[in-house]
């Protein structure tokens, strides 16, 4: 239950074309993350699926049914907003049960389903509170609870963790992933944070200016980025990009090498420069070096490093780990 198809989707806001032409299949039960820089149209796609915006052209199917022109409430979807959008004048229980109240379910059934959701999300003790008496993480849970009670085929999340602090965000990532394996509905999750995408998704859709750059599971995107955009966007620290002589040596316009594939060379590598900055993370060390003729090059070295800022450094990489691009598109050898 919950297969979503977007067919030739097109969306204008006035004269501004935000989504030129988008085709996407979201398998049922998947955790699909739409990721891309801010302003690339992620929220728009989500709101089109939710029915909060009208499509300009194209179709939206859920489980084969055309829902393009249905009301949001009839699409069997639920949405969690970035702002949580809790009703300030209702208690937590009323917030979670609002959809059921509107559907005129018997009071006992509502109570039961609210309690079920509250139990999953550990909100039992907070049911009589108003939203303003909750912490950010608790509000987040209430918003998710409200989605759960609707028993939707598809959950839509629009940057739900961006208002939380870093440690809570890590915890909620785990909780959301667990929730997904527990209730097995399709989840479509929007974020600009590639770490969230990598850690939570089983399918990632990378977007750039309303177009899909690549669809795949996290490791596919990491190991075989099909475009330069994806190569730059996925992975932290970012992939090193070389043009000119270094790229020419590999018969391409642009060459990408991930920081963990850079090595310090003691017999004179092709990249000579000096160390600008060092980050000691414990298990490994990040070296940012200024290489003549290029931008800063990042290298991730396992273990500790006995070098200092300003020291000269030579870097190399092995041929097995290079990504080659012509005109922004991957060329496979």
């Amino acid at each position: 239950m919950g297969h979503v198809s977007l067919k030739s989707l097109n969306k204008f806001y006035g004269d501004l074309e935000v989504i030129p032409n988008l085709d996407l299949e979201i398998p049922e039960g998947s955790f699909t993350v739409l990721v891309g820089p801010s302003g690339c149209g992620k929220s728009t796609i989500l709101r089109l699926i939710a029915g909060l915006e009208e499509v300009t052209k194209g179709e939206i199917l859920i489980d084969g049914n055309d829902v393009t022109y249905l009301e949001p409430s009839q699409r069997k979807i639920a949405m969690v907003f970035q702002s949580y959008a809790l009703y300030p004048h209702m208690t937590v229980a009323e917030n979670i049960g609002f959809g059921l109240t509107l559907a005129k379910l018997p009071k006992n059934d509502i109570r039961k389903r609210v309690l079920e959701a509250a139990k999953i999300l550990q909100l039992e003790d907070l049911l009589e509170r108003k939203p303003k008496a909750l912490s950010g993480g608790q509000r987040q849970r209430v918003a998710i609870g409200r989605a759960i009670t609707r028993n939707p085929k598809v959950f839509l999340f629009d940057e739900p963790l961006s208002n939380l602090d870093a440690s809570l965000r890590g915890q909620m990532r785990v909780e959301l992933t667990e929730l997904h394996s527990q209730i097995k509905a399709t989840m479509i999750y929007v974020t600009h944070d590639q770490v969230e995408a990598m850690t939570m998704a089983d399918q990632i859709v990378v977007l750039n200016e309303g177009n899909i750059e690549q669809v795949g599971n996290p490791m596919e995107l990491y190991e075989f980025p099909q475009t330069l955009f994806v190569a730059r966007f996925i992975g932290s620290p970012k992939m090193n990009i070389f043009q000119g002589k270094v790229a020419a040596k590999y018969q391409c316009q642009t060459l990408g090498v991930r920081p963990e594939h850079m090595e310090i060379s003691h017999d004179g590598g092709i990249l000579k420069g000096s160390i600008r900055h060092i980050e000691k993370l414990g298990a490994d060390t990040l070296i940012y070096s200024q290489i003549s003729g290029y931008d800063t090059v990042t290298a991730r070295i396992i273990g500790k490093l006995e070098m200092n800022i300003g020291d000269p450094i030579n870097l190399k990489f092995s041929d097995n780990h290079v990504h080659r691009f012509n005109d922004g598109i991957r060329i496979d050898s």
């Binding site: 939710a50 909060l52 009301e71 949001p72 409430s73 979807i77 639920a78 949405m79 907003f81 702002s83 959008a85 009703y87 609002f98 959809g99 509107l102 559907a103 409200r146 609707r150």
Partner: peptide, 12 residues
């Protein structure tokens, strides 16, 4: 505006 949208999704 989110409140209105949330309640539309809730079926209001």
């Amino acid at each position: 505006k989110d409140l209105v949208e949330a309640s539309r999704i809730d079926g209001a």
